[in-house]
């Protein structure tokens, strides 16, 4: 367990999140998760268990049927399925997103913009900063991930690993309170996986901001996370410190550790 902030109020939490896809499949089923200041929580689980949907809901990017997301104890007015959000709800959701940085599995870089413009996009058009301040932030964020020399290059010219590092820099440039990683290495080959994994580990080791890490790579989870939450069929079924997660003889967790499945 790492350094908690002095306050007991979690920085980000969700409770009772429910969501069904239009085809009737359950995405989230009473999902609840707590994230404290400067804490790194890994969310693991078999394919299709709802990890990515949970992350999107935490980021304010997904409509839900029921449940709450709270930031420092204050409920976020997240859009509900089927309801048209009001102007002020939209703005509240946008302000929430500004505090949350998201790194996507397939990077999601803007192909029509340069690396620099990708990293300036958040400060410029999200935070509304002046161009020179946005550029300063973008350069600092790129330097943090070791990519400052590609500022003027087209984003699409880079390798997958480089693109993911730029995507991390783009999220950092907004200086968010929370970073969410959605399988940041699963689209990469083993070499790039090691590069990006090292970057995620170093960001986690800083303990400057809280992180949620959705990952398949249990080595990365072991190195980076303080706590591991196991997800199964849209709900969180286990939540324990990382040491305990890798030591426990609980049959379901063992099954997942060894076979990537929670049931036979």
């Amino acid at each position: 367990m790492s350094a908690h902030a002095s306050t007991d109020v979690p920085i980000l939490e969700c409770s009772g999140l429910r969501k069904r896809w239009p085809d009737g499949r359950v995405a989230l089923d009473d999902a609840s998760l707590v994230l404290h200041e400067r804490e790194v929580v890994a969310v693991v689980g078999p394919n299709g268990c709802g990890k990515s949907t949970l992350l999107a809901a935490l980021a304010g990017l997904e409509t839900v049927d029921a449940g709450d997301v709270r930031f420092r104890g204050v409920a976020v007015a997240l859009p509900r399925t089927g309801a048209r959000p009001t102007k002020s709800d939209e703005e509240a959701a946008r302000r929430h997103r500004l505090r949350i940085g998201v790194v996507f599995q397939s990077y999601g870089l803007f192909p029509h913009l340069s690396v620099g413009a990708n990293c300036m996009a958040g400060p410029r058009h999200g935070l509304g900063l002046a161009a020179n301040e946005a550029e300063r932030r973008a350069r600092a964020a790129l330097a943090r991930v070791g990519m400052e020399e590609v500022f003027g290059r087209a984003a699409t010219e880079l390798s997958g690993g480089q693109q993911q590092r730029v995507a991390i820099a783009r999220a950092l440039a907004n200086d968010p309170d929370v970073l969410l990683f959605d399988e940041p290495t699963s689209a990469l080959d083993p070499q790039r996986t090691r590069e990006v994994g090292a970057l995620v580990r170093s960001l986690a080791a800083e303990h400057r901001r809280a992180m949620v890490l959705v990952a398949h790579d249990l080595d990365l989870v072991r190195d980076a996370a303080d706590r591991v939450a196991l997800m199964e069929a849209g709900r969180l079924v286990a939540d324990l410190p990382v040491k305990n997660f890798f030591a426990t003889s609980d049959p379901m967790i063992r099954r997942f550790r060894e076979h990537g499945k929670t049931v036979d």
């Binding site: 940085g101 996009a121 958040g122």
Partner: peptide, 12 residues
């Protein structure tokens, strides 16, 4: 994903 990435950065 492009729309989501932009919204995640705080775009309207």
């Amino acid at each position: 994903g492009q729309r989501r990435a932009a919204l995640a950065l705080g775009f309207t």
